[in-house]
C-alpha cells in the first residue's frame, strides 16, 4: 500500500492516513488480515512525526478497522458495513452540498435537480445493489 499525504491541504495528516486506509479497504486494495506498514517505517517514508501515524492507527483501531497484535503489527479487520456507509456519506456530503448550491445558483428547481441525479444513476446502469 502506498500512502501520500498532503501537508498543505489543511486536513490533519492523521485524518488523511485514516481515510486512505478506509478508502483502500472500500476499494479492495487492502483485504482482511493484510498487514499495515509499521508506524516507524510509514513515518519515515512520509517524513511525518511517528506520533501522527500512531494516532491514525489508534483511531482506526478504535473504529474497528484495524486490530493490533502486541509486538506483531497492525492488521486489517473484516469490513464493518455500518462504518463504511457512514464513511461513504461523509465523503459524498460535500459533493451533495456543491450540487445543491450550484442548482440554487442557476435557479434549477429541487425536482429538476433530483431528476438530474437520477438520470446520472440511470446512465451508469443498474449495477448498484
Amino acid at each position: 500500500m502506498i500512502f501520500r499525504v498532503h501537508p498543505g491541504s489543511g486536513v490533519p495528516i492523521y485524518l488523511q492516513i485514516e481515510s486512505q486506509v478506509k478508502h483502500a479497504i472500500a476499494a479492495g486494495g487492502l483485504n482482511q488480515n493484510d498487514l499495515l506498514p509499521p508506524v516507524r517505517k510509514l513515518a519515515a517514508e512520509l517524513r511525518v512525526n511517528p506520533n501522527t501515524v500512531a494516532r491514525a492507527y489508534q483511531n482506526l483501531e478504535r473504529d474497528g478497522v484495524l486490530r493490533t497484535v502486541p509486538g506483531g503489527g497492525c492488521y486489517v479487520n473484516g469490513q464493518s458495513p455500518g462504518l463504511l456507509k457512514a464513511e461513504k456519506i461523509r465523503r459524498l456530503k460535500p459533493l451533495a452540498t456543491q450540487l445543491a448550491v450550484e442548482a440554487k445558483q442557476v435557479l434549477l428547481s429541487r425536482e429538476d435537480t433530483l431528476k438530474l441525479l437520477e438520470d446520472s444513476f440511470d446512465e451508469l446502469g443498474d449495477s448498484h445493489d
Partner: peptide, 14 residues
C-alpha cells in the same frame, strides 16, 4: 532537504 527530514523523523522522532 528531503533526506534530512527523513533522518530527523527516522533517527530522532522514532
Amino acid at each position: 532537504t528531503d533526506q534530512l527530514l527523513r533522518l530527523i523523523v527516522d533517527d530522532f522522532a522514532n
